[in-house]
Amino acid sequence: MTYTAKYPEPYYRDMLGLPVLMLEHEAPEQFSLLLQQGFFMPVPRICSLREFLCELVGVCGVYTEKSLQTIFLDGSAVDDIDQAMIRPGCRLALSAAMPGLVGATMRRDGFLKRMREGISLSSRREEGSDIQQDASFRIQVRLYNAVGRDLAGLFLHHGIMVSSPDLAEFFKSRPDSFFRHLRSIRFQGTSLPVQQSGLDFSCLPQGDVVLRLAMELENRKQQSQL
């Protein structure tokens, strides 16, 4: 099932003050290998996983219930996204339904969940559940398999925080077809050449940057599908 809802406004315009690399790319799903490696997202407050997905990112409804079949929070399998809490520094992984007995075992609230009860979130002690967190914080997110493909556009539209070396390595490993879909690339408002050989990331700082996709192209495509 492909995610087809119209993209909402990015929930965080200022990504913790980091420099922004803005791309226009016609095929956001081609970023899915970057998304499986892990990236960071800002979160304004401690909230449930459902609130994070639906209210902040915009992943709601049928897609959440039918397609997000395998979820891990800090390595623990999640069954109830209302109970799972997004806290500072946590690691969230989202995946589609998986094959094999273990795939079925890991499935959200699946029939075989007892087989992995030792690593289920519900069986593990929630540490620091009473911590109050007023300041925003960041979490690590990994999007796997079909979920990475489906939600690439949405997450990139909001903007993801990645390290400059990882980003440079990702672009370096892209095939030519990736660059045929790249319409423009700007860093802090300054245009960079779009040819692969011409991509020069020497202007990027050594730390993290925000990668964001301008979604005018994508929103137009989605509107034509609806």
Binding site: S67, F72, M98, G100, V102, I119, Y144, N145
Partner: peptide, 22 residues
Amino acid sequence: AVTGQGLPAYGTNVLTNILNEA
């Protein structure tokens, strides 16, 4: 979703990330 999409697209090795995450 598994037999019609996941397995044809990624094969059984789609499990690597999941088992590692777990």
